[in-house]
Structures are given as C-alpha cells and as structure tokens.
Simulated assay, not measured.
Amino acid sequence: MNTSIYDKTAKGRDEIATRKYQLAPRLRSLLVLIDGRRTEEELLRNVAGLGLTIAALDELLEGGLIVLSTSYATMAVAPVAEPAPLAPAPVAVSQASQFQALYEFYNKTIKSTIGLRGFTLQLKVEKASSVEELRELRMPYLDAVQRAKGNFAAASLAEQLDRLLDERPAQA
C-alpha cells in the first residue's frame, strides 16, 4: 500500500489567504485540509461527501497548489532510503535547475525528518533566493537532522545534499 502525504505550496497558501486563483469551492475545501500530515486516504475520506476523488488531488498537483511531501510504502516503517546511484551530472547544470532541486530536497526532507522543530529552517529555505543561500543552510540542516534522526540518517542525507550542491565532503 502506497501512502502519500501532500503539503501546500506557496501558491496554495496564497490561494487560501487571498482566493487569488479562484479555485472551485469543492477543491478549495480539499486544499484547506492539506497540511503535510494527513495521508492521501484520510484526505479523500474527509471529502468523499463532496464527491471528490484522487482526480481532485491530481488537479491541485497540476495547478501547483500542492506538492507530494512524502510517500511511504507503509506508514508503520519509514526508513531513510539509501541514495540511488546517480549518473554523473552534466557539466553545465543551470543555476535555476540546481536551485529548484535544492529547494525541493530541503522542502521534502525537513518536514519528514526534523518535524516541527524544522519550522525555522523551513522559513529560511522559503526566503532563499539563490543556490549560495541554500548552500549556507547545509550545516544547520545536517545538525538538525542528526539531532532528530541520528548519524546514519544525517550521513545519508548529507550525501544526497552534497550531490545536489556538487560538493564532496571532506574525508576524516
């Protein structure tokens, strides 16, 4: 059983606050329920009376109002996955694509590994506007992961993050 957890994007939070994108009322009801903690099944169960299905979640995803935050094979066990071997990165990786990859990495992993204690760090990620600003968050992020999940999880995530940052950690 695949259990997915969704969270609002900045665009989704903007829609909730201002109704800027004029989302249909039924979809808006679903968007309000999405909080980064409820599973896909729980969300759909809560809006079943409105006639909403998985297609409604897909519509919010396509509209950029929500993002897949976490996806587990089971909710009982959520281990930190070993990083898959990556092909060598192209030499000319654009700053924009690197920024997007780092931004998504931080957003996906802060909530699932650090939890509520990562809120301040999450705000710093949201405010970051360059790869360098995201690079500066590396050590605070890894320190927080180590405190929350231990050395193994921190090492695994550090390896993934270093690949995104195109850094090689120093060997001790």
Rank of each mutant, 00 (worst) to 15 (best):
A144Y: 13
S97H: 11
D14F: 04
L44A: 03
A10F: 12
R19M: 13
N2L: 15
E40S: 04
D14T: 09
A48M: 11
P83N: 04
P169Q: 05
I66E: 07
Y103W: 11
A84F: 12
E40P: 03
S130H: 13
E62F: 14
D58N: 03
E126D: 08
D58W: 08
L164F: 13
L116S: 10
K20L: 05
R138H: 07
P83E: 00
V32S: 14
E41F: 01
L164C: 13
S29R: 06
D35F: 08
Y72G: 04
A128E: 03
A87H: 07
G49K: 03
A144W: 00
L65G: 05
R19W: 09
V91I: 15
A96V: 12
M139L: 11
V47A: 09
K111H: 11
M75W: 06
T3M: 10
Y72H: 00
E104F: 12
A172K: 06
L164N: 04
K127Q: 10
I16P: 10
L44D: 06
G64S: 11
Q122N: 04
R117M: 10
G51K: 01
L43W: 02
L44S: 07
L50I: 06
K124A: 05
Q171N: 11
A92S: 14
N151G: 12
A78T: 00
L142T: 12
T53R: 01
Q95S: 15
A76F: 05
L123T: 09
K11G: 13
D35Y: 02
E41L: 04
T109I: 15
Q100A: 15
A172Q: 07
G150M: 12
K8H: 02
P169E: 06
D166K: 14
T3C: 01
V145I: 12
Q95M: 13
R19S: 11
Q122A: 10
I54G: 05
A154M: 09
L44N: 15
A96N: 07
Y106H: 02
L52F: 07
A170Y: 10
L161D: 03
A81T: 02
P140Y: 06
G118R: 08
L60Q: 09
I54F: 05
D7N: 06
R135G: 14
G51D: 05
A84N: 13
E159Q: 10
L52A: 13
Y106T: 10
R117G: 08
A89F: 14
D14H: 08
A73H: 11
G150S: 10
L157R: 02
A55H: 09
N151E: 13
D7Q: 08
A101W: 05
L142K: 03
R163G: 08
S130D: 14
Q95R: 03
A76G: 00
E126F: 11
D35T: 14
L44Y: 04
G64T: 07
Y21H: 14
R37Y: 00
T18P: 00
D166P: 01
A89P: 03
L65K: 08
V145G: 07
M139T: 15
K124G: 07
E15T: 02
K8G: 01
T9A: 00
V67D: 01
I34M: 11
